[in-house]
Design a protein around this nucleic acid. Structure first.
Lengths: 109, 109
DNA sequence: TTCTATAGTTCGGGAAATCGGAACTATTGA
DNA sequence: TCAATAGTTCCGATTTCCCGAACTATAGAA
């Protein structure tokens, strides 16, 4: 179990963010995590966002979000705490995440 | 040569837009088209945005942009005129495209 | 009309990314 | 030490992406 990789803020790339959020399941996971202040475990986020996703796939999704710089994952005991990096991303690309999240909300309704 | 498909504004999906623009070559093509008022041929857009892309690949890229609802392609004589659908997209997802384009500019510099 | 050139599209096969089940790892608590 | 829980990694099957070759559509010249 190699340590999880998180990019530095200045290494975050727009393409990676767009790619990560272009998948509905991942977008749902991310908005779920971004919506709550407290850290969320993988399964909790999945439960609140999308159901019946195999855990290997889920793990891959979290990896994509993580390596795009959208979330930070930290082990806390037996589980994994995921927090959004919205603040940092917004620092680098102001307005990008709000616009995407807003667009997704609009579409859902 | 079946007629080219363009989605209705109300059928445009955020995922499709994010996916289309998550590829650097496509993003460059799109910003190139969006930046100019007049319609651009495929090769002209490619020349101004990215070089040395095989034309079959280029054609696929245009197809992705078109089917995501980002551009409109119309045959005019022997060539193809591409225009951006920014206005329409912005109507449906206000602020989305500006935010993405701005983020890409920021990153480039 | 027929030939030729130009601008893209479509086809097809190899390369790369994605999905998901099974096995593995790390941590906690009994 | 054992069992349970939460994720990760491995790997084979499927899907998507890339790009050369062949094809289509249009314009202009002979």
């Amino acid at each position: 179990m190699r340590p999880l990789f998180h990019p530095q803020v200045e290494d975050i790339r727009v393409e990676a963010i767009l790619h990560a959020l272009s998948d509905p399941a991942r977008a749902a996971l991310f908005t779920q995590i971004a919506a709550t202040d407290c850290a969320q475990t993988c399964t909790a986020a999945a439960g609140g966002a999308c159901q019946a996703i195999p855990k290997s796939t889920l793990s891959q999704h979290f990896k994509v979000l993580r390596e795009a710089g959208l979330i930070r994952s930290e082990r806390q005991g037996v589980e994994m705490r995921n927090t959004s990096r919205c603040r940092e991303v917004n620092d680098r690309f102001p307005g990008l995440l709000p616009a995407i999240i807003d667009a997704q909300k609009r579409q859902a309704s």
